[in-house]
Simulated scan of single mutants.
Amino acid sequence: MSPRRSAAEARSTRERIIRRSVDVASLEGLEGLTIGRLAEDLGLSKSGLLGHFGSKEVLQLATLERASVIFNNEVWAPAADARPGLDRLHAVCAAWISYLERGVFPGGCLFVSSTFEYDGRGGPVRALLRRQFAVWRRRLAADVRTAVRRGELPAGSDPEQLVFELSGVMMSLNHALQLHGDSAAVVRARRAVHRLLDAACRPDGRPPSA
Rank of each mutant, 00 (worst) to 15 (best):
M1K: 11
R5C: 08
A8V: 10
E9S: 12
R11D: 13
S12I: 01
R16M: 07
I17N: 03
V22G: 12
V22A: 14
V22C: 14
A25Q: 02
E28T: 10
L30S: 09
G32F: 03
G32V: 05
L33I: 06
L33G: 05
T34M: 01
T34G: 14
T34P: 04
G36H: 05
E40V: 12
D41V: 09
K46D: 10
K46Y: 05
G54L: 03
G54K: 03
L59A: 05
L61C: 01
A62S: 11
E65L: 08
R66F: 07
S68R: 13
S68D: 15
E74T: 09
V75R: 04
P78M: 02
P78H: 11
A82N: 02
A82C: 01
P84L: 06
L86S: 07
D87Y: 04
R88N: 10
R88L: 10
L89I: 09
V92A: 07
A94Q: 08
W96D: 15
E101P: 03
G103N: 14
F105E: 02
P106Y: 08
C109T: 03
F111L: 09
V112D: 11
V112N: 10
V112R: 13
S114N: 07
F116L: 09
D119K: 14
V125T: 13
R126A: 10
A127L: 07
L128S: 08
Q132R: 06
W136R: 15
R137S: 10
R137K: 12
L140D: 01
A141Q: 12
V144L: 04
A147F: 05
V148L: 01
R149G: 09
G151H: 04
L153T: 08
L153E: 08
A155Q: 12
E160F: 08
L162V: 12
F164P: 00
F164A: 14
E165G: 00
L166H: 03
S167E: 14
S167R: 10
M171H: 09
M171Y: 06
N174A: 10
H175W: 13
A176T: 05
L177Q: 02
Q178C: 12
D182S: 11
V187L: 15
V187Q: 15
R191G: 15
V193N: 05
C201E: 03
D204N: 15
G205T: 07
G205Y: 05
R206T: 14
